[in-house]
Design a protein around this nucleic acid. Sequence first.
DNA 1: CGTCAGTTTGAAGCGAATCAAGAACAGTGG
DNA 2: CCACTGTTCTTGATTCGCTTCAAACTGACG
Lengths: 251, 251
Amino acid sequence: MNVIGPRETGQTGLTKSLSDGKGAILSHLQSLSSLSDDDRDLLASALGPSANWRAGHELIAYDAPLDEPVFVVSGWACRVVNLPDGRRQILDFYIPGDLVGYSPRSGARAKASHLCLTNVVTASAREVVRRVRQEPSRYTALAGALSAIEDETDKGLIDQVVRTGRMLAHERMIHLIAELYRRHRRAGVGVANGFAMPLTQETLGDAVGLSTVHVNRVLQQLRREQIIKTVAGRIEIPDPALLAEHLRLIR
Amino acid sequence: MNVIGPRETGQTGLTKSLSDGKGAILSHLQSLSSLSDDDRDLLASALGPSANWRAGHELIAYDAPLDEPVFVVSGWACRVVNLPDGRRQILDFYIPGDLVGYSPRSGARAKASHLCLTNVVTASAREVVRRVRQEPSRYTALAGALSAIEDETDKGLIDQVVRTGRMLAHERMIHLIAELYRRHRRAGVGVANGFAMPLTQETLGDAVGLSTVHVNRVLQQLRREQIIKTVAGRIEIPDPALLAEHLRLIR
DNA sequence: CGTCAGTTTGAAGCGAATCAAGAACAGTGG
DNA sequence: CCACTGTTCTTGATTCGCTTCAAACTGACG
């Protein structure tokens, strides 16, 4: 029985799902700072064409210039560091609605490889970012959202350090799942109390610094404790208060 | 025998050591982007008065506004996250020459507590930062250095994730020591092939995610392998090539 | 129906934490 | 100058969390 996700069903290449995807982008940005009509119009008009990428594709190589920011329309991506002997450490995840490869510093370079973990659809954010920077006073909310995104990325990295540095296995998983749950709700992705989890347990392990086998065991424990339910490639949170309770103990 | 540091001898409150300290600030910035006369003049004139803080003092509280950036003149500080049950995770260190509490985003808030690990002397960077932002074209090098500092902070966090997430104990220590060694040399602090190490092994453990006891054992191993030497509160690198060799295996 | 990626399970081993106690040291006050 | 104190470092014994190894199981897919 699959605990987590049958593999990704695969984008069929159509641009059909864009409506959902744009929804995620909008919800996400809206949640960061409430958008004006100007902001919304800009997103509607200046959001670049969408592109399809297969799982495993490297969106941005290590040290490549960060001059082509994109929104994730659907699928998951991440930043990852590979050690010479094959070990790897995932730094953070990008889910639908997230902005990938953005830096306010012109000339900035990628500090890690940006990788598609599933098939991914992206929409170029280049024009949006350019216009917002050109007229920040017109697109104040979007400008604020960009700042907020930077802050969030930093916070995410800090959380990642705390998880891997000072938490036990089950704490790491709870903490990560809670973060992903929060972000999915914010982006309006994944209805009800749960979200789609297309990652393998191996990938999850590379994120929280645990072996695949142990991820499996920890997930079983969390299910036994009714903190999560896993059905058909989704993680459900049957009792958000219970999750919050456990979170309170660790952060 | 103390492997690492007799405790900090303590700043006596004099502003005398400012000359050394300013040296560290200059070397550090210079190494990031080569300073013009304008840049140098600004540093000489606009660097704020120095202040003394005792070990344990919280320079910036969690979530406090980041509106008072300071350079470290002497001593060590860090960013730290405290878990409810007493565990703590150090995110990064600030050594002489480093800029603490700087964010380019106005209104930004501290994402973690900023703590003095030893007695610390700081010099306000507020004026310098203000002037550089006011006339970035006049102080191009300093403007570049500020960007570079942001980049370095990010890179440091990423390294920290990799260390705690995917490295063995001795690899974590080697990796951290190598980083500190590089930064000390860059700031022109700590002559020859070594640097002052005023941190306790407990503090080191909170940084690399290990217990005090294990930090002790790992340090002994590194000494046995001649990768480091520890004398009188200093860490010496007898053979930088050997250190580099070990580094190559892990990153 | 065979293949393959992913999940699950058990057994054994290892790395690091914990516990507890002692030694070395810095700072303090007599 | 020396006894006293508290912190830090050190060491040994034990325990525990997690990894590793190996094999079986499951479901998707061609």
